[in-house]
Write a protein that binds this DNA or RNA. Structure first.
Lengths: 129, 129
DNA sequence: AAATTAATGCAACTCAGTTGCAAAAATAAG
DNA sequence: CTTATTTTTGCAACTGAGTTGCATTAATTT
């Protein structure tokens, strides 16, 4: 278990993910919450929330780390076999990432044990067209 | 067009991708070729090769940039609609990334124009089990 | 062979993410 | 409620992948 104590920093951070359905950059979180808590704290809490499978993360276009709320799309136990995942879409022009409202099935092709899977689709979003 | 001139640095770099079917980290390339050419050169050539759709890149587990040979899985023209992609598998234990030998179809769900798509499946590979 | 343009090396830089340590806050024990 | 224990936080310094500017060198054009 990653999270042990309920602190105000934790609550503040969690709120950001309730307000927003799309994914958020750590950099963005730091600039939004940087005056309320230290950036190290933000990084550490995000780490723990991912350990607990409350959030999941991936790296977008420029190597920036993105976090999104996790709802069954990944599993903390590496032994489990996942077979579904949700694609994210990143606009290469404005950089924004949203989760698409589809559930995809993972191909049953690997002998490997799968714990996370992420499909990042990149292109140009509607508003940038 | 990214690449304009045939230089020995370019050839040396391209050889690395002929020798290896799996994806390679830039960091790895720098440590392999760092005595033959400057790391800046490596970064710049990789950039150009991606512009020309000869290589494509994505970010793995620790935010490291990976490159792999591109064969129709991405397109330099952002206007085109892609409908297939190839998943990569990264072992969370040893970090290695290989391309899986399947071709997947992209869900026809977005109004957006798609230029790149990458599915990164993560778990434990056979040799780490 | 000379002129042009692109590629390279080098050194210094940027900035996302990390680490160690002391102080503060949260929970547990008495 | 008070004290002891353990986790969390802030701060400052650090790490390292990736970038930038500029002078030099190499490839291509004329």
């Amino acid at each position: 278990m990653g999270i042990h104590r309920k602190t105000s920093s934790l609550n503040t951070l969690l709120k950001e993910f309730n307000n927003d359905i799309s994914a958020i950059t750590v950099v963005d979180l730091v600039s939004r919450l940087g005056d309320k808590m230290n950036k190290t704290t933000i990084y550490r809490i995000l780490n723990k929330l991912e350990e607990d499978s409350i959030l999941h993360s991936f790296f977008g276009k420029n190597g920036l780390k993105w976090y999104a709320k996790c709802d069954g799309c990944c599993n903390s136990k590496p032994e489990s076999i996942l077979n579904k995942f949700r694609p994210h879409f990143q606009c290469l022009s404005c950089g924004k990432i949203d989760r698409l409202n589809i559930e995809m099935k993972l191909p049953k092709v690997t002998d490997q044990k799968v714990s996370v899977s992420q499909l990042l689709i990149q292109g140009r979003c509607e508003s940038c067209n």
